[in-house]
């Protein structure tokens, strides 16, 4: 088990390096850099940039130097000083901006994941056991509907309904009195009271696909000979179902975290933009549109790393659940 853990951790290192490179390169793709954008936007507002300040910035980030030098400078800052560079759009170090938002993104994604599981698992089992029943068709249909509705559309519709019929706003993660308040139990409670709306919105598509996966897995397992063995032993159907096929179908279900998590993080980004939640989404899009490169790259990188870590956790969970993987 320990060996398994170590091997998985080792695998992660090249993945993380690759992620950081990809994040950085994407940000480098557009012509020009943030300095030129900044100069242009300042010029548009009729201002001029101080030449010496420009020099200093160019020096600090190695602008004008080859991309790999810029990348290395950036990485050096992150690894040795925890410095992700500065956000020019906010005039602050990136690290001041990302962590709280990343934490909320994490909470939101995790809550969505739990929601997705809690809903998909029982419905998937029901759908498989009662295959072709009315309930199965209904679940399948709702599932398809959930898959077909873009997250943001659902968010818009909910917002519209809340606004039109309840005259309420569903945006945000906190009530106004807590928005700027320091963390307290009250604020945590407030967070959870607000959290369910985005969680349900983000979770819909994932729930729909997980129901289908659970159903398919379980249907496969139900046809396996060991089920017949267990039945021939005289086990009651329900006990049999949960001890064997459901338990075994749980493994591939858990391993879906690997791709459910990226979709949830994606969903969280876009839903947060619509609902203007204080997570990474809205900041990321602003950063991208303004070519605020270090901020955008840091977000893309950290979100991806978060996902990779989530996948690692699910792999460990899977190893714990499945002796075949554990003993490999």
């Amino acid at each position: 088990m320990l060996q398994f853990l170590l091997r998985r951790l080792l695998y992660m290192i090249p993945t993380m390096i690759a992620i950081s490179i990809v994040a950085f390169v994407i940000i480098q793709l557009p012509p020009g850099d943030f300095l030129t954008t900044m100069v242009a936007s300042m010029a548009a507002q009729g201002e001029d940039m101080d030449q010496s300040a420009m020099r200093a910035l160019e020096e600090q980030y190695g602008l004008g130097q080859p991309v790999h030098i810029q990348y290395l400078k950036w990485m050096q800052g992150i690894l040795f000083r925890g410095d992700f560079g500065d956000s020019f759009g906010w005039n602050k170090p990136v690290s001041d901006l990302v962590w709280s938002r990343l934490a909320l993104t994490f909470v939101l994604s995790l809550a969505s994941l739990l929601f997705v599981w809690a809903v998909a698992f029982p419905i998937g089992i029901y759908s498989a056991v009662k295959q072709y029943s009315i309930g199965d068709y209904f679940a399948t249909f709702i599932g398809f509907l959930g898959l077909a509705t873009p997250n943001f559309l659902l968010a818009l519709i909910l917002m519209y309904i809340a606004f039109k019929f309840f005259n309420q706003s569903v945006g945000g993660l906190f009530s106004p009195e807590y928005t700027e308040a320091p963390w307290s139990w009250g604020k945590v409670a407030d967070l959870f009271a607000h959290l369910w709306v985005p969680v349900v919105i983000i979770g819909t598509a994932g729930t729909a696909s997980l129901i289908r996966i659970m159903r398919a897995n379980l249907l496969d397992e139900l046809r396996k000979p060991y089920v017949v063995t267990a039945r021939a032993k005289g086990l009651p159907e329900w006990r049999l179902l949960f001890k064997y096929p459901v338990r075994i179908a749980l493994n591939p279900f858990v391993s879906t975290v690997g791709w459910v998590l990226p979709t949830l993080v994606s969903g969280a980004a876009i839903v947060s933009i619509v609902l203007s939640l204080p997570t990474t989404g809205p900041l990321l899009i602003r950063a991208l549109l303004q070519q605020d490169m270090y901020l955008a790259a840091s977000f893309i990188m950290l979100l991806s790393i978060l996902t990779v870590i989530g996948t690692l956790v699910s792999d460990l969970l899977l190893a714990w659940l499945d002796p075949r993987i554990r003993m490999e």
């Binding site: 993945t15 990809v22 994407i26 793709l29 557009p30 990226p262 991208l288 893309i300």
Partner: peptide, 18 residues
């Protein structure tokens, strides 16, 4: 690797690069 990256941020990054 590609699958492990959340798609929307990646797409956003690439699309913004156009």
């Amino acid at each position: 690797f590609i699958r492990s990256i959340p798609t929307i941020p990646l797409w956003m990054g690439l699309a913004a690069a156009l």
